[in-house]
Design a protein around this nucleic acid. Structure first.
Lengths: 340, 340
DNA sequence: CTGAAAGCGCTAACAT
DNA sequence: ATGTTAGCGCTTTCAG
């Protein structure tokens, strides 16, 4: 097999013109069936592949979309990414993936890359740093320049794009309520994502449930942290002076982490401690005991976010940004399910 | 902020020619410092971003590389992807990510996409289906057409590209040896990736250790499977009629899965069962007990694979494909570490 | 030091 | 039904 072959070369060989070939290969009805056949056979023989960049230069469509996620190691994002990839490739698009690593600077670089015309639009879950500082200039720039953007999970009202999320407040509220109703009293909330809208909403949901049900007799207790060594210290200290019987965690890993630490301190799950987290991931399914979670239907969410973006890209009208709130679902496993 | 601005428009505004502007922005020494300054200021003012596709059409460099992974939900690949992304973005490249989902067809589509000129080269971990059927035509085509390819993890001698792996045989051998030397006798090997070179090598390493140390007095026992429901049945059945005291697993999830199942059947880890897996991931670190593993330095491996590819892309010489074998490392945690 | 012009590979309006 | 031509945005000779 030789080097890449171009339309021009194909034209030379076939004695047709470049445009005839181009049309034939895109099944244009201007071309006779006979010629089409000939040309297609030839293209196959020479293993012709159109240069998609040359094409996109002309058509202003790249058929690729950008994706920016804060942290690929969180199983949540891996699952969303899977959904995005499936939807996108089904529709003939490709994805350029960028990992912001929770950093505003890296995120900005990626947005600038996307804004240079290499994608038809992009999906983003905002970085922690971006959210806690309200740095939305670049992303709003991109949108103003006409680039479709849909945010998922970590979204912001200050950004003028579509949003796809679950109801974080309600989900956390429900999770907390579940523990309260099964007679747990001293329930704490742990979160590695305070500063994000997601973390804040979940914290609010937890607080609301505690306040509402206990009417001030028991105060909410929130342990926010930024890294796990820090968390270990904080939680250990906390457990030394407090007895708890419930943990609501803002994500999957922190739930598992807190549960394991509590177990190592002598707690029995679920006998005297119930734990519930967010994300139905690989950790929750394989922990000991298996973790009850708020299932965010991560892969489905990724698909919907991608579909929303592609719709925006392919439709000409510029309607107002929409917000899609997907249902979440409590999945009860052993970590909240005592025999009694 | 208005629409995207082009060199041409900048030329109109500045009264310089397109070529002068192009040169100025790329710091060409043909242009006077004064002019450069003016032009750069203007570019900044108008927020000029070069269209990378137009550029790559001209320069034949895309500054993007492709990545094909079989399964983003395996933490191993998430970690490798992280390493790839870090290395690549450090060197000014972007990645187009494709997930083959262990399917030959999806993999082939991605390779064809990459072979259409949209990347300067690509990284791939071969799909199960591809490996077990020896379907290497497309990938070898791409290589013949001059596209640099580096394989990682799942590699093949039948493909004429660079390879980056750990020593799978030796790693499994060492893991097995460890169990044998700590007085375990009835050690089984479980694997969801038989059919891949990685799975096969690890199985061989295990077999070799068993054969060598027990000299035929104890036979190796291998449980290969393709999905987890199947595995549950197989392993359960096996445990009903056999007593074991060691498990070597070919990856992370299968180790955790087998361990949990054994625990539910009454085994105590590590007291009467030792378990060791592959990949130092989120599961191994947070299982109960924490899992001993063969650390594959996944992120580092990703970086090295990416660096190898970029080196190949940027060097002109076409040297013979090289094979890089990275060291792996046993990390001992509770799952193999009884008090005695 | 600056500019004109060609051309990367493709599409599409406009001939013929 | 087929071909001619212009041009997408950029880089890069080559001239001036």
């Amino acid at each position: 097999m030789s080097k890449k072959i171009t339309l021009k070369e194909l034209a030379l060989i076939s004695e047709f013109s470049v445009s005839t070939i181009s049309k034939a290969l895109s099944d244009n009805r201007e071309i006779s069936t006979k010629t089409k056949k000939k040309i297609k056979a030839l293209a196959k023989e020479y293993n012709y592949r159109p240069n998609i960049y040359a094409r996109s230069l002309k058509t202003k469509k790249t058929k690729t979309i950008g994706v920016i996620i804060p942290n690929i190691l969180a199983h949540y994002f891996a699952k969303v990414l899977l959904g995005i990839e499936q939807e996108v490739s089904k529709k003939g698009y490709s994805i350029i993936t960028c990992i912001s690593d929770e950093s505003y600077e890296k995120e900005t670089k990626s947005i600038e890359l996307f804004n240079s015309g290499c994608v038809d639009g992009f999906l983003i879950s905002l970085s922690k740093e971006t959210q806690s500082n309200n740095f939305y200039e670049e992303i709003n720039d991109a949108i103003e320049q006409g680039l479709p953007v849909v945010m998922f999970d970590r979204t912001s009202d200050k950004v003028n794009g579509d949003k796809v999320t679950i109801n974080d407040f309600e989900s956390a509220y429900n999770a907390t309520q579940l523990l309260i109703e099964s007679d747990h009293k001293k329930i704490i909330f742990v979160s590695p994502i305070s500063g994000t809208n997601v973390g804040n909403e979940r914290e609010k949901g937890y607080r609301q449930a505690i306040t509402e049900f206990f009417k001030g007799t028991i105060a909410p207790e929130v342990l926010n942290f930024t890294d796990y060594p820090e968390f270990t210290t904080t939680l250990k200290q906390y457990l030394e002076t407090n007895i708890i019987d419930g943990i609501v965690a803002a994500d999957e890993l922190s739930a598992i982490y807190a549960m394991n630490l509590a177990i190592s301190k002598g707690y029995k799950v679920p006998e005297n401690l119930a734990v519930i987290g967010f994300t139905d991931g690989i950790l929750s399914n394989n922990s000991n005991p298996p973790l009850s979670v708020v299932d965010q239907h991560e892969t489905e969410l990724g698909k919907i976010a991608a579909a929303t973006l592609i719709e925006r890209i392919e439709s000409n009208e510029t309607t107002a940004p929409k917000t899609i709130v997907l249902p979440s679902e409590l999945i009860l496993r052993k970590s909240t399910h005592s025999a009694s």
